[in-house]
C-alpha cells in the first residue's frame, strides 16, 4: 500500500547516502590515480608561461574551432544543447539548489520553472540527437563501446524522470520523485568508473594541453 512512499524515503535516505559516498570516494580515487602519475618537469628552456595558456585552454576549449564546427555541426550543436540544458536544469532548478544547499551549505538563486522546463527539453533533445549521431556517424560508431552507450543512458534517465516527475506524468508523485532520485543515484554510483569522469578530468586535460603548448610558446 505504502510502497511508493517507502520507495521515495529509501531513495532519499539510504540509497542517496550510499550513492553519494561511492561517488565521493570514487572521484577522489580517480583524481589521485591520475595525479599520482605526475608530469616530469621539462629541462628545456621555456618559450612561454604554462599557467596562463593552461587556464586559457581550460576556457577556450569550450568553443569549437570553425573548421571542426563546419565539418561536424551536429556533434557540436547536440553537445551544446545537451550540456547547456543539463547545466541549467541541474544547477538552476530551485529544488536542486535546495539539495546543494543541504549538501554543501550554500545555495544560489534559481530560474523560474518554465525556463528550467524548457532547458530540460533542450537537454533531452540534445541527448537524443547525440545518440542518433553516435549510431549513424561512422567515426562515432566505431569509437563507441558499451560504456559510451551506458553513459548516455545514465545521463538520459535523470533528465527523463525529472521531466516526467515535474509534469506528473508518472503517478503517484512519490514514485516519480523516487525514480528521479534513483536515476541520479545510479549516475552517481557509476560516475567515477566511467567516462562521466570527464566532467572533472577535462579540466586537467585541457590544462595539461594548454600548459604544454604554452611552454613551447603556442596557444593551443
Amino acid at each position: 500500500m505504502n510502497d511508493a512512499m517507502d520507495f521515495l524515503l529509501w531513495a532519499r535516505g539510504t540509497a542517496f547516502d550510499v550513492a553519494l559516498t561511492i561517488f565521493i570516494i570514487g572521484v577522489i580515487i580517480r583524481l589521485f590515480e591520475i595525479l599520482s602519475l605526475g608530469r616530469p618537469r621539462s629541462l628545456a628552456e621555456p618559450k612561454g608561461n604554462q599557467l596562463l595558456p593552461g587556464m586559457k585552454s581550460v576556457i577556450s576549449r569550450t568553443l569549437p574551432d570553425n573548421g571542426t564546427f563546419k565539418r561536424q555541426p551536429l556533434t557540436v550543436i547536440a553537445g551544446y544543447l545537451f550540456h547547456i540544458g543539463l547545466l541549467i536544469s541541474l544547477l538552476l532548478f530551485i529544488p536542486h539548489i535546495e539539495l546543494f544547499n543541504a549538501t554543501v551549505g550554500f545555495g544560489w538563486p534559481g530560474l523560474p520553472n518554465p525556463i528550467v522546463d524548457a532547458a530540460t527539453v533542450i537537454a533531452i533533445t540534445g541527448l537524443l540527437a547525440a545518440l542518433w549521431n553516435r549510431l549513424t556517424n561512422p567515426v562515432m560508431k566505431l569509437l563507441s563501446d558499451k560504456e559510451d552507450y551506458l553513459v548516455w543512458l545514465l545521463t538520459f534517465l535523470p533528465l527523463l524522470t525529472g521531466y516526467l516527475a515535474y509534469h506528473r506524468m508518472i503517478e503517484p508523485y512519490p514514485l516519480a520523485l523516487g525514480l528521479h532520485i534513483l536515476s541520479i543515484e545510479l549516475l552517481l554510483i557509476l560516475f567515477p568508473f566511467t567516462k562521466l569522469m570527464h566532467t572533472f578530468t577535462l579540466f586537467l586535460a585541457r590544462w595539461y594541453n594548454g600548459a604544454m603548448s604554452g611552454f613551447r610558446g603556442v596557444q593551443s
Binding site: 602519475l37 608530469r39 573548421g67 571542426t68 557540436v76 553537445g79 569509437l143 586535460a205
Partner: peptide, 21 residues
C-alpha cells in the same frame, strides 16, 4: 603513462571530433 595521459584517456567522450582535424 603519466598524469596527462591518464587525464586524457579519462576525459575522452568518443565524440569523434579529432577525426575531423
Amino acid at each position: 603513462v603519466d598524469a596527462p595521459v591518464a587525464a586524457f584517456f579519462s576525459s575522452c567522450v568518443s565524440c569523434g571530433l579529432c577525426a575531423e582535424a
